[in-house]
């Protein structure tokens, strides 16, 4: 049985790139373009084991999504941050982010952070 990962990013290229890399690593990937859409996906897909979310997004940003997921005891959330944005990283961790992936990242970087949360 493959493991479902929800990728949340308003940048389609990044979203599809992560989807592609994780799919090749054996994951089932579902995607959403903002936090609000991500919550809808979670309602429909209780099998999601991990969320990878950007921070800056329209409608509902990554911090708000993180809070809402924690409130409902949802799956662990990995946050994508930009290098040098240490305030964002601290805030994300304080809100319960399971880990942080700093952009730009390579496939190896992504899989290294994702692996401990899945059985890859």
């Amino acid at each position: 049985m493959t493991q479902a990962v929800l990728v949340v990013d308003d940048e389609p290229v990044i979203r599809h790139l992560i989807e592609h890399v994780l799919a090749r690593a054996g994951c089932t990937v579902v995607t959403a373009g903002d936090g609000e859409a991500a919550l809808g996906v979670l309602d429909e897909r209780p099998d999601v084991r991990l969320i990878i979310s950007d921070l800056g997004m329209p409608v509902l940003d990554g911090f708000a999504l993180l809070e809402r997921v924690r409130e409902r005891s949802g799956p662990p959330v990995l946050i994508l941050t930009s290098r040098g944005d240490e305030d964002d990283e601290r805030r994300a961790r304080a809100l319960g982010a399971a880990d942080v992936i700093t952009k730009p990242f390579s496939r190896q970087d992504l899989l290294r952070v994702v692996r401990p949360h899945l059985e890859l």
């Binding site: 290229v13 599809h16 790139l17 592609h20 890399v21 090749r24 730009p104 990242f105 390579s106 496939r107 190896q108 970087d109």
Partner: peptide, 19 residues
């Protein structure tokens, strides 16, 4: 699409590596 994404991922990896 898959091969394009692979090429994109390759290119992205290379950019990240070089940076």
């Amino acid at each position: 699409v898959a091969s394009t994404m692979t090429a994109l991922a390759d290119a992205y990896d290379q950019v990240v590596f070089l940076e």
